[in-house]
Design a protein around this nucleic acid. Structure first.
Length: 371
RNA sequence: GGACGGGUGGGUGAGUGGCUAAAACCAGCAGACUGUAAAUCUGCCGCUCCUUGCGGGCUACGGAGGUUCGAAUCCUCCCCCGUCCA
């Protein structure tokens, strides 16, 4: 079997230590997946990412379909080869763009019509098309197309979106069974249901019957409170089979990650470390640090005195502030490196704590310092 | 010596009688960012007072006077800067 998921240890909280094996390598879980939407994690080279210990990257179907085009990537030998990334890749289906490009799209049962944010041209994405693209890209993990909606959506709207997402999941599974190669790619279903516990429960239950090799929980952290995110995650995760990986999509803040892990989440991705880095927001063991703040102008300390990343070992806050405020690209590179290191370091600590049964202690440590 | 053109808040620079504490941009200060339309976006940015409000007072468009109910805007003189002519 090219794909294999095993749970190596569990914590009383529900946290799991696991290992997901793919044709491009192993992913130790709980895992954080840096986001490389356009086949690049902005500001980092693939070598940087390998050196950071990144085991899996996320890329985006919609963006790569628009540019450079999935057929071109197929021609170039697939996404791994094209971007020279030897490790696993998970591709998001474009479902999030249904949400974030809401002004530029129209959803029907058949699929989604987008107006390209690049040039305004019209494109149609169906569950089948989204998979066809992901098959051309050759990602290790494909996501079904889903309809991600606002947290504030009414129950009827949410129900409709969840039902549509379920129908799309079924179509995706069927399409993958006919055209996909399970030795090469795995397909995850996505639980929707907004902020309505009953819908989440129902949707998760129905989705499990489709027997996906892995499950994602989507449509969260889109405006609702953290406690609601956790509640919905709990409701969904508790209905997912224990022997399959669970991926909570699009989270989270450093201080929230452990909460999700304790709810049994195995995989997460988030633009926060990379985007925040570009915006001058650095994560530290003592909380967030806005590097442009005047107070760091002559601060010789590293970003985080407890951090062992290459940036903290070498550069001062004063220098990083200078780079940021002068708009130097090195600021993006160094800030991104630090934030990714910080996220990956948390994940490593979490895995270690689950292995050694110290998760509660880690939790109180983190709680005391972060935020 | 003469002829034009010009002097606006930290900078560039709009504004030719009231809607102007003065556009816009930059700089500065602060905040946000959760499956990336994001190296982006938002707020503040003369001083001061308070019951923090589409609140009060003061100062401000080179300087000094003047016209006017009202002047960055019109007039007079002066001081600077630029271009050109002697």
């Amino acid at each position: 079997m090219a794909f294999h998921f095993e749970v190596l240890a569990t914590d009383p909280s529900g946290a799991r230590l696991g290992r997901l094996t793919t044709p491009h390598g192993v992913i130790d879980t709980p895992a954080f997946m840096p986001v490389g939407t356009a086949a690049t994690v902005k500001g980092q080279t693939q070598q940087d990412l390998e050196d950071l210990g990144v085991q899996v990257l996320l890329a985006n179907t919609y963006h790569l379909y628009l540019r450079p085009g999935h057929e071109l990537i197929r021609k170039m030998g697939g996404l791994h080869r094209f971007m020279s990334w030897p490790r696993p890749i998970l591709t998001d289906s474009g479902g999030y763009q249904v949400f974030s490009l809401s002004a530029l799209r129209k959803v029907t049962d058949e699929g989604v019509t987008f107006r390209s944010h690049v040039d305004g041209s019209e494109h149609f994405l169906s569950p089948e098309k989204a998979l066809e693209i992901q098959m051309a890209l050759g990602s290790d993990i494909c996501m079904v197309l889903d309809e991600c909606i606002e947290a504030s959506a009414t129950e009827p709207c949410t129900r409709e979106a969840a039902a549509r997402t379920f129908d799309w999941a079924r179509r995706s599974r069927d399409y993958f069974e006919r055209h996909g190669d399970p030795e090469r790619q795995m397909l995850f279903g996505i639980v929707q249901g907004g902020t309505h516990a009953a819908l989440r429960r129902e949707n998760a239950g129905a989705l499990v019957a489709l027997n996906f090799p892995g499950y994602a929980i989507g449509g969260l952290a889109v405006g609702e409170s953290h406690s609601v995110t956790c509640e919905m995650t709990q409701v969904a995760a508790s209905r997912l089979p224990a022997d399959r990986p669970r991926y909570l999509m699009g989270v989270g803040k450093p201080e929230q990650i452990l909460d999700y892990v304790r709810l049994g989440v195995d995989m997460m991705d988030c633009v926060l470390p990379t985007r925040s880095a570009r915006h001058g927001c650095l994560f530290t063991s003592q909380g967030r640090l806005l590097i442009r703040n005047a107070q760091y102008a002559a601060d010789a300390r590293p970003i985080d005195e407890d951090c062992r990343c290459a940036v903290c070992r070498r550069y001062s806050r004063a220098y990083l502030r200078h780079l940021y405020s002068t708009g130097e690209f090195l600021a993006v590179i160094l800030n991104t490196h630090h934030n990714l290191y910080f996220y990956l370091d948390i994940m490593g600590k979490i895995r270690e704590a689950i292995r050694f049964g110290n998760l509660e202690r880690l939790r109180s440590d983190l709680q005391a310092r972060l935020t």
